[in-house]
Every structure is written in structure tokens, then in C-alpha cells.
């Protein structure tokens, strides 16, 4: 649900974030703090502050779209405590990693910041200079500039944190709808087959969608294995079908609907068409109201005696 950007509050949050990170690094609570700094083109990039001075480079603005939680997997070895900043969806990504038991909570210090919406960095970058300034400094952003995920966000406040910066924002339930899935479901099977074939053919299999995904956190990915060879190394629609099936099914019930997979896809494959179908089905078949919010036991890791039966044909 896009919300009005409050530039003043964001600025205060950035100041408080720097102060908090500086405190944590100074008193030794953490030995590194995961946040964002300004990249060469002005867009935030991931940043690992290791000294109190470096904490001064942290930024907090409406362009911090990238989920940092996945970087924790790089720091599994060792005992160091890690600080991390999360907004609402960032905390879902973090919770995903925690619920999957992929990083110990006791080695984490989480700074949470309630979110008033994130903008699509690519779209903001493409704006003429004056307009970009109006957006970033005046907070005047049209609906279309927000990240897609803000449209269905029902978790603007961090779900995991040790320190919360600022006040929680009003948190209303948002009906989870999947318009693109509904649209595709209305097509004939043949049309859908052709549609997805087009997507498979476009894929260059760079694995950006997998590597950015907080739910894709296995120690070893079966797509990388040679034995069994789930995905042949030759590229083409057939192997890409397998790739995208495996990727989507393995995160079914664990996808946090952040949409990072499709945002980072360089060739523009709308990957959420695949993920959303699972979210929609899981919510309809098993009555899960917020299928994208990490649960202690995932929908496909459990069963109910009264689950619909599926014997026979359609």
C-alpha cells in the first residue's frame, strides 16, 4: 500500500540509524553493520560498516530496495555479531532466513525502521534531474514510482528487531490479490503454455533471481549439482522450464512476495507470475490468509486431515 513519503522523518531515521550503528560498533555489540551507502550513481548499494567512522556513511532513503538479509549467509562462519537494518519487507526476508534456521538470532542485532514505501530505483534514476529532486527531496512520488511490492505490502513495520527507530506506521490489513495470476488463469492452457515458453526462451540463466531471493537459502542448490542433473547445462526453453519450476516450487509457501527476483532480472522476466500462483493457491486451498509472512511451519511442510482430496482427474 503506497504511502506518502515523509522526507523529514526519513532524514531523521537516517541520522538515528547512523547514531545507533555507531553506538553498536563502538561498544562492541556488533563487529560489522549491514546497511546501505550511496553508490556511484546515487542509488544505495549494500554496505558493511566495520568501524564507528564508517557508520557515518550509512544512508536511509526511499531507494533502499535491496534486501540485506541474504548477506548474512556469507557470515555464517565465525562467531562475530552482526548488526543489520531492516524495514518491513527487509524484516520478512530476515525472518525467512531465521525461520529456516540459516542464521542464529543470537548473533544478530536488528535495527528496525518502519517503512512509508519504497521507490523503484530504476524508475527514479530514469527521471529528469529536476523531477528526481522533487521526488527525493520533496517526497512527491506518483503511485507508479513505488516498488510493486508496496502495492500489496501489509507489513510496513519490522516484524523482527532489537531497536526500533521512529514510531510504527499505521498498519492496516491489505487483501492479498493476485491480478496477474487471475488474468493468466483466464487464458486457455495453450495460450499459457506459449506465454511461459516465451519467458523461458528469454532467460539467460544468470541466477540473479535465485541468488537475490531470501527464501533460496539452501547450503547447496540442487540446480548447481551435476548428480543428479536436475537442470541440464544447455540453455533452451526445455531446461529453463525445469529451472523456473524448481526455483518457484522450492520457494512455494516460503516466498515473502518481495518481488526482488523480477526486479533484478536483467531481461525483464515477470517472475512473480510464477511465485504468485503458489501464494494464491496456498491461500485458497489451505486457508492461509497471509501466505507470504514466514510461519513457524510452512504451509507445504504440514498437512491437515481435512485438506481437499485430489483423487482422480480434474
Amino acid at each position: 500500500m503506497p504511502r506518502k513519503l515523509d522526507v523529514k522523518t526519513l532524514g531523521q531515521a537516517q541520522g538515528a540509524l547512523r547514531a545507533e550503528a555507531r553506538r553498536l560498533l563502538t561498544d562492541g555489540t556488533v563487529s560489522v553493520f549491514l546497511g546501505h551507502e550511496e553508490g556511484w550513481d546515487g542509488l544505495p548499494v549494500a554496505f558493511f560498516a566495520a568501524t564507528p567512522e564508517e557508520a557515518g556513511r550509512l544512508v536511509w532513503n526511499p531507494l533502499v530496495a535491496f534486501n540485506l538479509a541474504k548477506y548474512l549467509l556469507d557470515r555464517l562462519a565465525g562467531e562475530e555479531k552482526v548488526g543489520i537494518v531492516v524495514n518491513g519487507c527487509g524484516s520478512l526476508a530476515l525472518d525467512r532466513i531465521l525461520k529456516d534456521h540459516r542464521f542464529p538470532r543470537e548473533r544478530l542485532y536488528v535495527v528496525g525502521i518502519p517503512c512509508t514505501g519504497l521507490l523503484d530505483p530504476e524508475k527514479v534514476l530514469a527521471l529528469p534531474d529536476e523531477e528526481r529532486e522533487r521526488v527525493l527531496e520533496g517526497g512527491e512520488a506518483g503511485e507508479d514510482l513505488y516498488l510493486k511490492r508496496c502495492g500489496w505490502c501489509d507489513a510496513p513495520n519490522p516484524v523482527v528487531y532489537d531497536t526500533l527507530i521512529g514510531d510504527p506506521v499505521p498498519d492496516e490489513p491489505v487483501a492479498q490479490e493476485y491480478p496477474r495470476v487471475v488474468e493468466l488463469e483466464a487464458m486457455t492452457p495453450e495460450e499459457r503454455f506459449e506465454h511461459f515458453k516465451g519467458l523461458y526462451e528469454k532467460c539467460i540463466r544468470c541466477f540473479a533471481c535465485r541468488n537475490v531471493c531470501p527464501a533460496c537459502n539452501c547450503r547447496e542448490c540442487s540446480l548447481d549439482q551435476w548428480e543428479p542433473l536436475w537442470m541440464g547445462r544447455s540453455t533452451g526453453a526445455s531446461e529453463q522450464l525445469m529451472y523456473h519450476f524448481i526455483r518457484a516450487f522450492d520457494v512455494a509457501g516460503r516466498c515473502i512476495r518481495c518481488g526482488e527476483c523480477e526486479r533484478v532480472c536483467s531481461v525483464g522476466i515477470p517472475l512473480m507470475e510464477l511465485n504468485d500462483k503458489f501464494l494464491k493457491d496456498i491461500s485458497e486451498l489451505f486457508g492461509v490468509k497471509r501466505p507470504h509472512v514466514p510461519a513457524d511451519i510452512e504451509p507445504l511442510g504440514q498437512f491437515a486431515l481435512e485438506d481437499p482430496d485430489l483423487e482422480g482427474a480434474v
Binding site: 506465454h195 519450476f245 516450487f249 486451498l285 504451509p299 498437512f303 486431515l305 485430489l310 482427474a313
Partner: peptide, 23 residues
């Protein structure tokens, strides 16, 4: 088979979505 039922239920719907005739 209870776990299988849940998983295959989701799969069946998904196969249809990918354009494979559910029959």
C-alpha cells in the same frame, strides 16, 4: 501421503497454470 496430498494438490494446479492439460 498426507504431505504428498498437499504438495500434489498445489502441483496439479500449477501444472495447469503452466499450460499442461490437468487431465
Amino acid at each position: 501421503n498426507f504431505y504428498a496430498r498437499r504438495r500434489l494438490l498445489v502441483l496439479k494446479s500449477y501444472l495447469e497454470y503452466l499450460g499442461i492439460d490437468p487431465r
